[in-house]
Design a protein around this nucleic acid. Structure first.
Lengths: 96, 96
DNA sequence: ATAATTTGGTTTATAAAATAAACTGATTTA
DNA sequence: TAAATCAGTTTATTTTATAAACCAAATTAT
């Protein structure tokens, strides 16, 4: 009846991050922060969780002299996102 | 960009309950329990929250000699559910 | 008749999550 | 060189979700 919802994606901020990365395929920390409206602390924590799950890859480089954190969605992350969207449909009468 | 998600609805069990009530428009506690796979305790807590928010109406009657808890979605609940679905679309590229 | 089980839940305790506040360190600007 | 800004991380706090434990009545078994 109702498909279980991946708890890693069933979170407002993490879902927003994933949604963003699905479309842009590469984004820097400050950009994600701006687009999601998250605080830096919260974003940092949630990016870690997505990264530990293998849903995103986080590259820490430098942009000139300043640190620069670049995020990309992984194939596993994309699959998980698509699975989440599918599962959600079982709750939203979209597919009925 | 991303619309905020009503935290009362952004919960697997509460969303399942609301989704159920949108379609059947009246359901008894044991039926909801069975359909959602929830434990009685968890369901009881989440029904209370939905009820306190005015999203569902809970009627406690008797079915013969046994207690019987009947749930229905309210107009406010339906509106909130629809709003939640709309908000979700901003995360799911459905509407892009 | 009464003991055990089932039904229909509620209350309470615990574990996990989300979030912001506080902090760090380097860089740029005044 | 002092103040402010950038780019984040760590830590602490508040919420939340969830299940375990519990309660009362009714039914079934002995």
């Amino acid at each position: 009846m109702f498909q279980p919802l991946d708890p890693l994606l069933h979170s407002e901020l993490r879902l927003a991050v994933m949604s963003l990365l699905v479309s842009v395929e590469e984004a820097e920390f400050p950009y994600i922060k701006e687009q999601t409206g998250a605080t830096a602390g919260n974003l940092s924590v949630q990016l870690d969780k997505l990264s530990e799950a293998g849903y995103i890859a986080v590259e820490k480089t430098y942009k000139g002299k300043r640190p620069c954190t670049i995020c990309r969605i992984t194939p596993a992350g994309l699959k998980a996102f698509e699975g989440y969207v599918d599962a959600l449909k079982s709750y939203l009468e979209i597919s009925k």
